[in-house]
Structure formats: C-alpha cells, structure tokens
Design a protein around this nucleic acid. Structure first.
Lengths: 222, 222
DNA sequence: TAATGTTTTTAGGATAACCTAAATTTTTAA
DNA sequence: TTAAAAATTTAGGTTATCCTAAAAACATTA
C-alpha cells in the first residue's frame, strides 16, 4: 500500500482502470495499445501485478485484467494527481486545455502527497479538471458521474457540456474553436441515423458532428 | 544534445558539476556518497558517460571525472530546473525553504522546457532560488558568483547574507530561527582561531557559529 | 622503499521493463 | 465443425542500473 509503485506500474493501473470502467476486464491488446508497448510485455507485467502481495490486479489467462481494491486505490491516486495537475497548470500557468495532458502525464508520477494537498487547497478542491473529468476525492473515491454521451441525444434535446474525453490535441483545439467546451449550452437540431451524425446548435451557430466526436463529449441533459 | 538523458544520468551530471566546481575532478567515492550508491556502480556509469557520443564526461582511470561542455550544459539544465522549481514552490505554494529541496529533486527531471519557461516568466526570471543559489540562465550559463564564505570574515567586517548552501532541513530551520537568511545584514564580532568559531551579530542578537555552519553561508561584504 | 591502508576498478550477478518470434488458445465464420 | 484469423502467452534476449566480493592501483608513512 505504501511501497512506491514504479511509474510503469502506475501507468498500467491507470489504463486498466480506464479500460475496465465498463465492468468488462481490460484486454491485453487494448492495454498494449494504450501503453504503446507489445502485448507480450503486457502479459509479463500483469502476471507480475497479479502475483505481488497484495495483488494489484485479478488476472486469468486469456480473460483480461481487472483491478483489485488495492490496485484501484493506486490507480485513483495517479488519476487524482493527473487531474489536479491539469487544473493547476491551466489555472496558474496559463496552459490551454489541449496542452496540459502531456505535462501532467509526467508530473503525476513524481509529486508528493504534500504537493497534491497544496494544489488541491490552492484551487479550493475542484471537482473536475479542465476537460470536465471528475477528480477522485482525497480519500480516493471516484465521484458518481451523471453525464451521458452526446451521441445518445436526439433532436430537440438540450444539454450542457460537462466533459470532453480525449487527449487529442487537435480535436480539443477544434472543439474549443466551435465553443464546445465544458459549460457550453447546446441543442440537438438533427440526427442522421445512417452515419449517426448530429447537428448541434451552440449559441447562434450550428455544426454537424460525427459519432467519433459526439461519443467523446459528455453532457448533462435538462 | 537533444536525446533525453535518464534521471539517473542527470543526477550524475548534476553532482559531478557540483563536486568539480573547484576545478578538481570529482572522485568516484565522493560521487558515490552523493548519489547514495556504491563506488563500483559509479565507475561503471562514468565509463559509459565518457564513451557515449558526444561524451558527457572526461574520465581517466583513478583520476576522477569532469564534465565536457556537453555534460556541463546538461548539468546546468537540471540545476536550472531545480532552482526555478524551488523558487516557484516557495512563491506559489507556500513551501518553506527547508521543504522545497526534496520536491524539486523529483520534479527537476520531468518538467518540459515549456514548463520551465512558464514558471521563469511567471516569477519575472529570478536570479536566485530561495536559498540564494544562482539560477543558470535560460541559455545555460552560470552567472558569476561574487560571494565569499562567511567563514573567511573577521571581526568588524559587515556583510549581507546572500546564500546558504545546504540541503539539511534541520540546519535551514535553525538558521531561519536565528534570522540567518538571504538578505540579512550581519556583523562579525569575534573570531576564535582555535575552533574557527565566529560570533555574529544579526540585528540586536549575537550568536556563535562553528565552521561547519559559517562555511556554508555565503555573503557579500561591504 | 616496503608495508599498510585507502581508493578505485573489475568480475560476476540481479532486477525491472522492455523486445521479437514462435507457440498456443480463443473466436469467428465458412 | 472445422479452418482461418485474431488474441494471447511462452521462450529467449536486450539494456539500464544497481549490487557484492575480490583484485588492482595509488597514497602514506614508518
């Protein structure tokens, strides 16, 4: 619990958390793709993570991995670091939301608990990062997420953008240009069932967005 | 030059810079002590650093190591990161001067050049860190140091403390309690040639300081 | 200058985290 | 239901960075 986990292990846990968020175990291949390493290397590492004491993951051959409670706590710690750092970099150093990810990616592994506490306090304990992602609490619980993907909305529904889940710099810049940032009020004007395109009105402008984009934007309807 | 140096290598270079500041090469044993590793490991690493292209150190068996211009640039980069970070942690997160070292020690290896630029600009390009250490310039030159060790002063000389060179948390707290911080105006009242103790007046108070301390405090006389 | 002590290096090993290629298992689809 | 494709695992290797123990070089001093 208090033994220091390597950066590499922290990355594994973080991505396993993400990939198994839907309940289904994370697959070796998906994990390898996320981590940018070979599937064979992933197999080796998850076998190790499953056999340390206490185990950080649950693993059965060919069945993928899930986190144990210990593994999940470790993952949430890293995710909390990452998201607090993103918020901090934007608020105090003028980073834009498309620039912060990479920097936070490296810093998240090295900051102390003291540092974490200080930036959280300095920002008044924010609930979300600049992309709208929920920040795990100090006691490492992930707050409940009551948002839905924009892709599930249909014409005449209105919503407020809560979160954009993508590390893609270009996409983020594009969305910012369109005004599609957390807090933005939108209305669905049209839906095309064949390609799942949605026509969205933001302020006075309308835009057509593909499923690739609408599935990454999470909204609060109402 | 632009290949990323590992954290470990950055640490070697930083300490070689420091240990060879007096012109004499850094010894294997001293380096090992600084790095907290065995002398045998140091030998292995400096052999490697001497044989990469371009070489980062000059090394001859049993003669110690010095930095090449490339090695020195790399060292100054890390030192700049460290000192800027210390200043930034103190200024923006309320760290005290005895708390910053450890945190900066880890962050120095992972911040981007962009981050470096942003914090330098945010602080108005400071010349010294919270201990008074000179910060290498953005083009990686170490500014000239015109200070002298307090230990070289004699009775009736007055001086202004410019820098305290020690990572020792307890010592730093002690000195702060005594008011012996950068900027403090002091006067030497007495010198004991046998133990090299100095009696120092700061404001209204006087204190006797041993060589162990006075050799770590650097002052500007006048 | 020879003996002793210190410093440094060599030799041989360990571990973490990756790799490729080949083998195996699982899934898909003819 | 079986053959092909895809996913996963095993086997064997590499590199970086550390280790201990033993050997060698250097320095000191009697």
């Amino acid at each position: 619990m208090s033994e220091t986990l390597t950066q590499s292990i922290q990355d594994y846990l973080k991505h396993i958390y993400d990939l198994s968020a839907d309940g289904a175990p994370a697959s070796t291949n998906d994990l390898a793709a996320r981590l940018g390493i070979s599937p064979a290397s992933v197999t080796g590492m998850i076998q190790r993570l499953a056999s340390v004491t206490p185990p950080l993951v649950r693993y059965q051959k060919h069945q993928g991995v899930t986190l144990t409670p210990d593994g999940e706590r470790a993952a949430l710690e890293v995710i909390r670091h990452h998201r607090l750092l993103e918020a901090w970099l934007v608020q105090t150093l003028g980073y834009s939301w498309d620039e912060v990810h990479e920097e936070a990616e490296r810093l998240e592994h090295v900051i102390s608990e003291d540092f974490e506490r200080r930036i959280a306090a300095a920002m008044g304990h924010p609930l979300r990062d600049p992309h709208g992602e929920l920040i795990p609490t100090a006691d490492l619980k992930m707050p409940l997420d009551d948002t839905t993907p924009l892709s599930t909305l249909r014409p005449n529904q209105t919503a407020r953008i809560q979160c954009v889940k993508s590390p893609d710099t270009d996409l983020l810049r594009h969305l910012e240009d369109l005004g599609l940032v957390p807090g933005a009020q939108i209305e669905v004007m049209d839906y095309s069932p064949f390609d799942h395109n949605l026509t969205i009105k933001i302020g006075l402008k309308s835009t057509v967005l593909g499923f690739n984009i609408t599935s990454k934007i999470y909204v609060e309807t109402g």
